[in-house]
Design a protein around this nucleic acid. Structure first.
Lengths: 217, 217
DNA sequence: CTATAAAGTTAGATTAGTCTAACAAATTTT
DNA sequence: AAAATTTGTTAGACTAATCTAACTTTATAG
């Protein structure tokens, strides 16, 4: 198993989460390689029994492939948590560093992180950390955009966390665990007005509200 | 710069510390590759201006190559220190893990380690950590085997630290910083009797005593 | 329902790192 | 100094991951 193949597997896994049908061109875009490269890589992943692929048909992950991918994601998210909790990195910095560290083969290192962190269930963006068997236990949260006026909720996760979003939330002093109350919803642009541990009410766009996953509290 | 080339450079650097003349066959042995592989790799290192090599002549590191190597060793030793100080790994475990981590490209990570550790000068085996410019400031210690009877010394470093040696020292409760007094030297086998923070006197073989680097105290 | 566009495939080349087999040069042994 | 050994070199091949160019299949848009 090479770093490269690990990255393909991870990419396929993430595409798999969002849609069912995975095309080679999408994978190529995600991996930033040409079509012939994807094509030959997919063949070689198939030989390892991580994907199922037939000419001109959509790509599928095998159970084995899903597990393999989940174990890489486990390393990634444990690392992110460690970087945030033990090394003082911000949640907007950890992804990039974890992208490199996730490929280390030395299990001891990740096991120790896990232990030091007290076996965390989620990473600094609220995404679930798969267990050592590659099983993911994900809670189902609701986008903030779907909550009614007057309801009190807690931010638990993010749909996807770009650096830009994370820096924006930093500026607004919104973090995982922040509890907020919907004060008003603007029908025209679907923006919402919320109140939390700050003197003033804050306006959040529909775009942002769709990305914040919350639970009632 | 690939991981592979980094490892060659490191190997050459270490050979360079012990002898002046570096042969391709030695390098091959150290890297566990065949002669033709070494041969072609050396040519490609030469193109990058990290070594000087002429057919049938001994291999030499350039200044640039030495610096490059020292920066990798910096990452290695900083990592070892971090693993020991922050993650609770034993000094016999850190080398193996650091061998993988030293190749990460993300400087932030090493800079943060350095900061958290308070800019350490040595790793958990007493080896000096090169600075960010690749400059090594090494103190010159003396092997314990050369110390006279009655003298009090402090263990500061190891000539080379195999896992076996480190586990042996663990059993004898000898660590960096341990202060000991030479009670007796046996002329026949050059073994020495020492006393330190333990009730009984301890016998150390000449072999071990040669590997322990000390300073007077 | 054909024509164009998009997606996928094949063929062939390249680079990095490795190997074995065969040979050549240098060194050591007798 | 000749023979034997070690060390180094060359040639040629292989795998992984990538590419471009040319072609084919499938999907889409009139």
């Amino acid at each position: 198993m090479t770093h490269t193949k690990e990255n393909y597997l991870k990419a396929i896994y993430h595409l798999d989460q969002n849609q069912e049908k995975i095309s080679l061109s999408e994978l190529g875009k995600k991996m930033e390689v040409s079509m012939p490269t994807v094509n030959s890589m997919v063949k070689s992943l198939q030989e390892k029994d991580w994907v199922i692929y037939q000419k001109y048909q959509p790509l599928q992950l095998t159970t084995k492939g899903k597990q393999k991918a989940a174990l890489i994601i486990r390393k990634h998210r444990l690392t992110e948590m460690f970087l945030a909790q033990y090394m003082g990195f911000g949640w907007e910095e950890v992804h990039e560093i974890a992208e490199e560290i996730e490929h280390l083969q030395v299990d001891k290192f990740f096991d120790r992180m896990d232990e030091l962190l007290g076996y965390p269930a989620v990473d600094p963006h609220g995404s679930p950390i798969p267990d050592k068997e590659g099983v993911v236990v994900a809670k189902s949260y609701v986008p903030l955009s779907e909550i009614e006026v007057g309801v009190q909720v807690r931010i638990c996760s993010l749909v996807k966390s770009s650096k830009e979003l994370l820096l924006y939330l930093n500026r607004k002093e919104i973090a995982l665990g922040t509890e907020l109350k919907i004060e008003k919803k603007e029908p025209f642009d679907k923006s919402i007005l919320v109140r939390y541990q700050r003197p003033d009410k804050v306006m959040l766009s529909h775009e942002v509200a769709q990305l914040l996953l919350v639970e009632l509290c």
